[in-house]
Design a protein around this nucleic acid. Structure first.
Length: 877
DNA sequence: GCCCTCACGC
DNA sequence: GACGTACGTGAGGGCA
C-alpha cells in the first residue's frame, strides 16, 4: 500500500468556516466560529482519511511573487475581517496540538506549497488528497492526486479525480489555467480577456486545447469581434494564465517524511477546546471528558457507606439525588451522594430511605445544601416523604442565569469549564433509550460522587460570575425560592375529572369517524387524513386544487393554506375540522388521560425553569401551558380541570397586557404611558394611532389589525411574520410597523437603543438582570442579524414580564403563608396564575392575589390583574 | 430512533 | 436581492 498524503489549504478552509457559521464567541469574547469549523473539518479528515502524512498550508504575507508580474493581483480582495484574523493564530495552535505539519512560506501562497508537495509525492508514487474551497487547485488533479472541494456548509466535500473533472467541467486539469487565462477571475482580480466568459472559453478550449493553441489558430476563430478582443489582449491573457498557474517548485526545506502525522497531544487539545468552549468536540476526541488523558483528575475518593454517621455531615454540603428517568415524579432513586469538607459519600437507596440521620439533616434548614437542579432533588425526595430544606445554591440554575443560551446546562459540560475537573455525562454512564440501565454500584457511586464533588467545587466560580453580572439576587431571591414553590406545585398536582375527559373523548371519536367517512367519500378514496403527504397528494394531484405553498418535503397542507382554499372544495372545511378535533382527541383527551398519575389520580406536570431564552417557564409531561381556550370546542377540555378538594374553586388570575405595560415603562413612551394610566383598551388606542381616527371611528377590523401589530411588538415578529398573521403584504405590514413607531417615538427610541446596547455589550438584560447574549447582532448575514435585532428589542420586554410574574409567585407564596390560607398554587401560564381555593376563602383570596400581583413591582404604569373563579378551570373565566 | 409537519398556548 | 424569520411541547407519519 502506497503512502497516503493529505494536504489542506488552511486559509481557504478558514474562510469557508468563517462565513458558513454564525459568529460564535466564547466567554472571554474571543470569536471562535472559524476555529470551530476548521477543527471539525480536521477531525473529519483525520477520521475518514486516516492519512499517514499530512500538512496544512497557509498564506504567509500579503505580497507574493505574483505581484511582481501584476501589481493588481488580488487587488479587489477585501481585507481579512478582523474577527477572522484574530482566529488564525488559534488555528496554528490547534494544528500544532494535533501534531500535523504546518507550513507557510514568504512570497508564496498556500496553493504553491500544496502544488510542490503534491508533485513530489506523486513522483514517489504516493496518493495525495487536497482539501480546499478554491477551484483553482483542480489544476493539480492527476492520476494520484485528488482534490476535495468544500461544498456549501463546511464538512461536505466533492472529490475530483481525472474522470470526475472531465465529467463535471469537460476539462483536463491543465486546462484550468487556460480557462483562467481566457476568462480571468474576478475574485483574484485576474483580468483574462474582456468579453470572454465561461461558455466561450470552454468552446475555444474544446477546439484548440490550450491558450497557446487558441492563438496559434487565431485565424480559424469565428466571430470578428471575438477575434479582435483576443488579439488585442493576448499579452494580458498570457499573463493571466501565468498568474493562475500554481508553482510546483517552491524551495521547501522539508522532506516528505517530515509530513508524517504524529500522535496528537490530547491534553493540549483538551485545554484549547476548553478555552474555546468546544464542549461537543471535547467529547469527540475524548468522550469521557479527558478521563483517559494525562491531566486526569485525582480519583475522587467516594466512600460507599452503610449508614450515615453524623461525623460525615457538614454545612455546606453538596447533595445529589440520582434517578435515571427524565420524569422525576415518583421516580426510582438509584442513590445519592454527599460532598463536603469531610469527604465524598455515596448513599444507596436503602440508606436514603432508612437513615434517620439523613432525614433529620435533610429537613434541617440550618444545614446548608448545594445542589444541581434543586427542583429535581426536592420533588424526588418529596415523593419518598423526605422534606428537603436549606437549599442555598443551585449550580444548574446558576449556569442558566449566567448564559441561558449556553449549549448545555448539564453537569458534565459545566464541569469542563474548570481545568482538571471531569464528570461523565449521564448518557455515557447509564446509556439511553432501551439500553438505559443502572451500572454496578462502584461505577454508580463514582459517577454520583463526582457530581456532588464537582458542584461543591464549582459553586465559588459560578457565584463569582453571578456576582460580576449582578445576578446573585436574581438567583437567591427569585429563582431559588421559585424552584421550591414550583416543586410544591408539581408535587401537589392538578385534580382531573377523568370521566369528563372520557365523555368529551367519546363525543370526539364519534364525530371524527363521521367526518373521516365524509372526507373519504368526497375524495373518492380511502387515505390517512393525518398524513400530510397522503393528504397533499389527494388534494393537489388527484383533486387538482392549486398548491399554494410547498414545504421541504412536499405540498404544504397547513391550516393557513387550507383556509385559502376553503371555497374551492367542500372537502376543505371538513379537513380543517378533522384536524382540529383530532388534535383535541390525541393530545388533550388521550394525552391527558395517559398523564393521570396512578398513585394520586392527578396530573403532575414538570416546569422547566432553566430552558427558555427569555426567562419564561416551560411545562412538560404533560404541557399544561397550552390547554385550549381560543375555540369553544377545545375550551371544553377545561371542564376536566377541577379542585382536588370538595367545596373548593379553581381561581385564575391573569395580568392584563403585562408585556405592553412593561414596554411602556422601559421605553418611557409618554403616549403609551398615558394610555395605560387612563385605563384605555390598548388595541383600540393602537388602532386610533395607526389609522389616525378617533375612538368612535375604530372599526373591529382596525382593532384586529392593531391587535396583531401589538402582538408583533410583544413577540418581536418581523414584517414577514406580521404579514402572515394578517394575510397582507410585507410592505403593508412594514408600513403598519412604521406608523406604530411614529406614534410611539419613545418606543422607537427604545428599540434603537436596545439594539445599540446589544452591539456594545453583546447581550441584553431584563428588569431583574436576566441576560441574553446575542453574538449574531454583528453578523454579516442579514437574516441572523435581523433576528438578533428583533430579539434585542423583544427579550427585555418578554423577559421582564417573566421576571414580574415570577416575583409575584414568590410574593404570593409568602402572602399565603402569612394568611394561613388553605389555598394552593397549581399552575403558571406565563401571565396567569391558577389556584385552588376553599369556598369560604374565595372572596378574600381573590383580593389578596389581585393585590399581590399588582404590586409585585412598582413601574410607571399600573399593573392590572383580573381574577375569576369557578367550579372548574373552564368556569374561571 | 430521528426528522418533519402540523397545531395548541402565550 | 437572497437568505427564513416570537417562544415553547407534543402527536402522528415516514424513513432508517
Amino acid at each position: 500500500m502506497a503512502d497516503k498524503l493529505v494536504l489542506v489549504d488552511g486559509n481557504s478552509v478558514a474562510y469557508r468556516a468563517f462565513f458558513a457559521l454564525p459568529l460564535l464567541n466564547n466567554e472571554k469574547g474571543v470569536y471562535t466560529n472559524a476555529v470551530y469549523g476548521f477543527t471539525t473539518m480536521l477531525l473529519k479528515i483525520l477520521e475518514e482519511e486516516e492519512p499517514a502524512h499530512m500538512l496544512i498550508a497557509f498564506d504567509a504575507g500579503k505580497t507574493t511573487f505574483r505581484h511582481e508580474t501584476y501589481k493588481e493581483y488580488k487587488g479587489t480582495r477585501q481585507k481579512t475581517p478582523p474577527e477572522l484574523a484574530e482566529q488564525l493564530p488559534l488555528m496554528r495552535d490547534l494544528v500544532k496540538a494535533f501534531n500535523i505539519a504546518y507550513e507557510e512560506v514568504e512570497n508564496y501562497e498556500a496553493d504553491d506549497i500544496i502544488g510542490t508537495l503534491a508533485k513530489r509525492a506523486e513522483k514517489e508514487g504516493w496518493e495525495t488528497k487536497i482539501f480546499t474551497g478554491d477551484k483553482d487547485l483542480l489544476q493539480l488533479v492527476d492520476e494520484k492526486i485528488h482534490v476535495a472541494l468544500l461544498r456549501k456548509g463546511i464538512t461536505n466535500v466533492d472529490t475530483y479525480d481525472l474522470k470526475q473533472l472531465q465529467e463535471k467541467y469537460g476539462l483536463k486539469p491543465s486546462q484550468i489555467i487556460d480557462m483562467k487565462g481566457l476568462m480571468g477571475d474576478s475574485s483574484d482580480n485576474i483580468p483574462g480577456v474582456p468579453g470572454i466568459g465561461e461558455k466561450t472559453a470552454l468552446k475555444l478550449l474544446a477546439a484548440h486545447d490550450t491558450l497557446e493553441g487558441v492563438y496559434e489558430n487565431i485565424e480559424s476563430v469565428s466571430g470578428k469581434k471575438m477575434k479582435e478582443k483576443l488579439v488585442e489582449n493576448e499579452q494580458q491573457a498570457v499573463m493571466s494564465k501565468k498568474l493562475a498557474t500554481i508553482l510546483t517548485e517552491v524551495p521547501l526545506k522539508m522532506t516528505l517524511e517530515d509530513l508524517s502525522l504524529g500522535e496528537r497531544n490530547t491534553p493540549a487539545l483538551l485545554e484549547l477546546f476548553r478555552d474555546l468552549e468546544f464542549s461537543s468536540l471535547i467529547d469527540r476526541i475524548d468522550p469521557d471528558g479527558g478521563a483517559a488523558g494525562e491531566e486526569q483528575l485525582e480519583d475522587v475518593e467516594v466512600q460507599v457507606i452503610d449508614d450515615l454517621d453524623p461525623s460525615m455531615l457538614a454545612t455546606p454540603s453538596a447533595l445529589v439525588i440520582e434517578s435515571l428517568e427524565e420524569n422525576y415524579h415518583n421516580a426510582t432513586i438509584v442513590g445519592g451522594a454527599l460532598a463536603n469538607e469531610t469527604g465524598v459519600y455515596f448513599l444507596s437507596p436503602e440508606v436514603l430511605a432508612k437513615s434517620s440521620t439523613f432525614k433529620e439533616w435533610a429537613k434541617d434548614e440550618s444545614q446548608e445544601k448545594i445542589v444541581f437542579n434543586a427542583k429535581r432533588a426536592v420533588v424526588g425526595l418529596a415523593w419518598q416523604d423526605i422534606p428537603l430544606e436549606g437549599v442555598i445554591f443551585d449550580g444548574q440554575m446558576a449556569s442558566y442565569l449566567i448564559d441561558p443560551g449556553a449549549a448545555s446546562h448539564e453537569m458534565a459540560d459545566i464541569a469542563k469549564r474548570k481545568k482538571g475537573m471531569q464528570v461523565q455525562r449521564d448518557e455515557t454512564v447509564y446509556g439511553k433509550g432501551k439500553k438505559m440501565h443502572v451500572p454496578e454500584e462502584a461505577v454508580l457511586a463514582q459517577h454520583v460522587g463526582r457530581k456532588a464533588a464537582a458542584v461543591l467545587e464549582l459553586k465559588p466560580d459560578l457565584e463569582k460570575e453571578l456576582q460580576e453580572n449582578e445576578q446573585l439576587e436574581l438567583l437567591t431571591e427569585l429563582e431559588m425560592p421559585l424552584s421550591i414553590i414550583l416543586g410544591r406545585m408539581e408535587r401537589h398536582g392538578v385534580a382531573i375529572d377523568k370521566e369528563e375527559l372520557e365523555k368529551i373523548g367519546e363525543g370526539l371519536t364519534e364525530r371524527l369517524q363521521e367526518i373521516e367517512t365524509k372526507i373519504h367519500d368526497m375524495a373518492g378514496t380511502v387515505f390517512n387524513i393525518n398524513s400530510p403527504k397522503q393528504l397533499g397528494e389527494i388534494l393537489f394531484e388527484k383533486m387538482d386544487l392549486p398548491p399554494l405553498k410547498k414545504t421541504k418535503t412536499g405540498y404544504s397542507t397547513s391550516a393557513d393554506v387550507l383556509e385559502k382554499l376553503q371555497d374551492q372544495h367542500e372537502i376543505i372545511p371538513e379537513i380543517l375540522l378533522y384536524r382540529q378535533l383530532s388534535k383535541l382527541n390525541s393530545t388533550y383527551i388521550e394525552g391527558l388521560i395517559k398523564a393521570i398519575h396512578n398513585k394520586t389520580g392527578k396530573i403532575h406536570t414538570m416546569f422547566n425553569q432553566a430552558l427558555t431564552q427569555t426567562g419564561r417557564l416551560s411545562s412538560t409531561e404533560p404541557n399544561l401551558q397550552n390547554i385550549p381556550i381560543r375555540l369553544e370546542e377545545g375550551r371544553r377540555i377545561r371542564h376536566a380541570f377541577v379542585p382536588s378538594k370538595d367545596n373548593s374553586y379553581i381561581l385564575a388570575a391573569d395580568y392584563s397586557q403585562i408585556e405592553l405595560r412593561v414596554l411602556a415603562h422601559i421605553s418611557g413612551d409618554e403616549n403609551l404611558i398615558e394610555a395605560f394610566r387612563h385605563g384605555m383598551d390598548i388595541h383600540t388606542k393602537t388602532a386610533m394611532d395607526v389609522f389616525e381616527v378617533e375612538e368612535a371611528k375604530v372599526t373591529s377590523a382596525m382593532r384586529r389589525t392593531a391587535k396583531a401589530v401589538n402582538f408583533g411588538i410583544v413577540y418581536g415578529i418581523s414584517d414577514y411574520g406580521l404579514s402572515q398573521s394578517l394575510g397582507i403584504t410585507r410592505k403593508q405590514a412594514q408600513s403598519f410597523i412604521d406608523k406604530y413607531l411614529e406614534s410611539y417615538p419613545g418606543v422607537s427610541e427604545y428599540m434603537d437603543s436596545s439594539i445599540e446596547e446589544a452591539r456594545e455589550k453583546g447581550y441584553v438584560t431584563t428588569m431583574m438582570n436576566r441576560r441574553r447574549y446575542l453574538p449574531e447582532i454583528t453578523s454579516r448575514n442579514f437574516n441572523l442579524r435581523s433576528f438578533a435585532e428583533r430579539t434585542a428589542m423583544n427579550t427585555p420586554i418578554q423577559g421582564s414580564a417573566a421576571d414580574i410574574i415570577k416575583k409575584a409567585m414568590v410574593d404570593m407564596d409568602k402572602a399565603m403563608d402569612k394568611e394561613k390560607t388553605k389555598a394552593v398554587m397549581l399552575l403558571q401560564v406565563h401571565d396567569e396564575l391558577i389556584f385552588e381555593v376553599p369556598e369560604n376563602e374565595v372572596e378574600s383570596f381573590s383580593e389578596v392575589v389581585k393585590k399581590v400581583m399588582e404590586s409585585a413591582i412598582e413601574i410607571d404604569v399600573p399593573l392590572i390583574a383580573d381574577v375569576d373563579y369557578g367550579k372548574t378551570w373552564y368556569d374561571a373565566k
